[in-house]
């Protein structure tokens, strides 16, 4: 007979944290570069803020609108009021999703992702995440990460968007 206190998973947590940081900045960038992302954010109320992260204690990514502009607010859930949380049930599942082994849709159908907040907002956020993934990832991986890869987008549009999103993400502008 023994009593055990659960240990940690620092490596997977670090991976997830880095990816959330990158994705958060990429969303901020995409809102400036891509019309669709911008349009989607426009449907959301002012000061709307959402968080994506893992139970029970992170890491998290907080993104929201501030004075009409989309901003990545870091990983602290307490930094401002949050209207919607996309919650991954555990760090292993977060790793599966953020290492693109499971798409957002697939993870949802596998009960790995829970929504805490209004469903319409969650759907907007998922659409935004899908577009950002298309920009960030090579086609081969992105077509696994989204339900339908937008192969009808003109090549120039995709390339320009990709360059824009990457530059701004890396520079943090």
């Amino acid at each position: 007979m023994q009593e055990i206190h659960a240990g940690g998973k620092p490596l997977k947590k670090a991976y997830v944290a880095i990816f959330l940081w990158f994705t958060g900045r990429a969303i901020q960038a995409a809102a400036k570069v891509d019309k669709e992302v911008k349009k989607e954010f426009d449907t959301l109320p002012d000061e709307f803020t959402f968080a994506l992260g893992s139970l029970p204690n992170g890491p998290w990514m907080v993104v929201g609108k501030e004075k009409g502009k989309v901003k990545y607010f870091g990983g602290n859930l307490k930094c401002r009021p949050i209207h919607l949380r996309l919650v991954i049930k555990n760090i292993e599942a977060a790793f599966l999703i953020l290492s693109f082994q499971e798409s957002t849709a697939l993870a949802t159908t596998r009960n790995r992702l829970m929504t805490d907040g209004e469903v319409p907002y969650a759907l907007s956020v998922i659409r935004i995440l899908d577009i950002v993934e298309v920009y960030l990832l090579p086609k081969l991986i992105a077509s696994l990460a989204v339900k339908r890869y937008p192969s009808w987008w003109p090549f120039g549009h995709k390339l320009a968007g990709r360059i824009g999103v990457y530059t701004r993400t890396l520079l943090g502008i």
């Binding site: 849709a105 949802t108 159908t109 469903v119 319409p120 969650a122 759907l123 907007s124 998922i126 989204v146 339900k147 339908r148």
Partner: peptide, 13 residues
Amino acid sequence: ALFDGATIYNPED
């Protein structure tokens, strides 16, 4: 319909 949750589970986007 874009804001109804059932869209997630449909096979095609």
